[in-house]
C-alpha cells in the first residue's frame, strides 16, 4: 500500500473556495452551511457517513449538480477566485477544467483509444499524430499504457474493472484538468486495483488538485493532505470539521468526528 508521506500542508494557494453552500431537493435540505478552502495541488479528502451529501458536494464543485433538475444550490463556489455560478461562466469549459471520476467506471462501447480521447476530441481538433501522442500520455499518466499499448483498438469493455477505472482516469487526464474530483473511485475495486489508483492519486497531486470522497478512513490517511468531515444533523449534511489529515484523524477533537472514525487510531 501507499505510504503516507505528507500530512497537513497548509501553505498552498486555495484553488477552490466553497462559501455557505447549501443544496436542497424541493423542501428537503441535503447540505447546509458548507465552507471549505481546497488548496491547490494537494489531495483534499471528504469523509462522512452515507447520506451526508459527500457526492452531492463533489458534484457542486463542477456544477454537475445542474443535471438534476430537482436540486437547488445556494451559496457559492469559487474557482481561482471566480464564482463558478456566475452567468458568464461556460459550464462545459468549467467541467473540462474540473474533471470527475465516478465510483463505477463508465466505459463507452468503443475502443480503448477512442475512450481516452472521448472528451478531448470534442474540445479541440486533434490530428492523428497529436491524438496518438495524447492517448499515450494520458494512458501513461494513468499507469495503463504498458497493459494496453498493443491493443488500443480493442473494445474497452473487455478490460477488467480496475483497468476500466484507470481508463476513465486517463480519459479525464487527457483534458489536462486543474482539479480532479474523485467520488469513491476505489469502492468497486479489488485490493491491487485500489493500490494502483491510490499510487496514481499521490503521483498526480503535484500537478493537479484532487478532491477525493472516500468511505475508507485508511485510504484517507494514506493519500490525503487535508480532510473535511461531513456529518448528519437533523438529516442534513453539514461540515463537522476540516483540517490537516493527521490532525483530524489523530486529534479527534470533535465528538462527531471521533464517532465517525470509530474507536481505533487511523494514523498509527
Amino acid at each position: 500500500m501507499v505510504d503516507a508521506t505528507t500530512c497537513g500542508t497548509t501553505d498552498a494557494r486555495t484553488i477552490l473556495h466553497v462559501r455557505g453552500l447549501a443544496v436542497s431537493a424541493g423542501p428537503r435540505a441535503l447540505l447546509r452551511d458548507i465552507d471549505l478552502a481546497i488548496p491547490e495541488r494537494r489531495v483534499f479528502g471528504i469523509i462522512g457517513p452515507s447520506g451526508a451529501g459527500k457526492s452531492t458536494l463533489l458534484r457542486c464543485l463542477n456544477r454537475l449538480v445542474d443535471l438534476d433538475e430537482s436540486l437547488h444550490v445556494s451559496g457559492d463556489v469559487e474557482l481561482d477566485g471566480r464564482s463558478i455560478f456566475a452567468p458568464d461562466v461556460d459550464v462545459d469549459t468549467l467541467r473540462a477544467r474540473v474533471g470527475i471520476l465516478f465510483q463505477q467506471p463508465a466505459i463507452f462501447p468503443v475502443s480503448i483509444e477512442k475512450n481516452v480521447l472521448f472528451g478531448a476530441r470534442h474540445l479541440r481538433r486533434l490530428d492523428r499524430r497529436a491524438a496518438a501522442d495524447l492517448a499515450e500520455r494520458a494512458l501513461r499518466d494513468a499507469a495503463l499504457w504498458d497493459e494496453v499499448k498493443d491493443r488500443l483498438d480493442a473494445p474497452a469493455v473487455k478490460l477488467s474493472v480496475g483497468q476500466q477505472q484507470r481508463l476513465c482516469l486517463a480519459r479525464a487526464l487527457a483534458l489536462d484538468p486543474e482539479v480532479l474530483l474523485m467520488d469513491e473511485p476505489t469502492s468497486a475495486l479489488d485490493v491491487q486495483s485500489t493500490d494502483a489508483i491510490e499510487r496514481l492519486i499521490v503521483r498526480l497531486a503535484p500537478r493537479c488538485t484532487i478532491v477525493l470522497v472516500t468511505h475508507d478512513i485508511d485510504q484517507a490517511r494514506r493519500v490525503t493532505d487535508r480532510l473535511a468531515c461531513l456529518g448528519l444533523r437533523d438529516g442534513v449534511g453539514r461540515l463537522v470539521q476540516c483540517g490537516p489529515c493527521c490532525e483530524l484523524l489523530d486529534g479527534r477533537t470533535n465528538a462527531e468526528v471521533a464517532e465517525r472514525l470509530g474507536g481505533g487510531s487511523c494514523c498509527d
Binding site: 454537475l64 467541467r95 476513465c168
Partner: peptide
C-alpha cells in the same frame, strides 16, 4: 445515466452529448 453524467463531466455540451453519446447508443 452514467453515460450522460460522464460525458457532461468531460465538458461536452448537451447537443454534443446528444450527437456523440445518446444517439449512437
Amino acid at each position: 445515466a452514467k453515460y450522460v453524467e460522464t460525458a457532461a463531466g468531460l465538458g461536452m455540451s448537451p447537443s454534443r452529448i446528444v450527437r456523440s453519446v445518446i444517439l449512437p447508443q
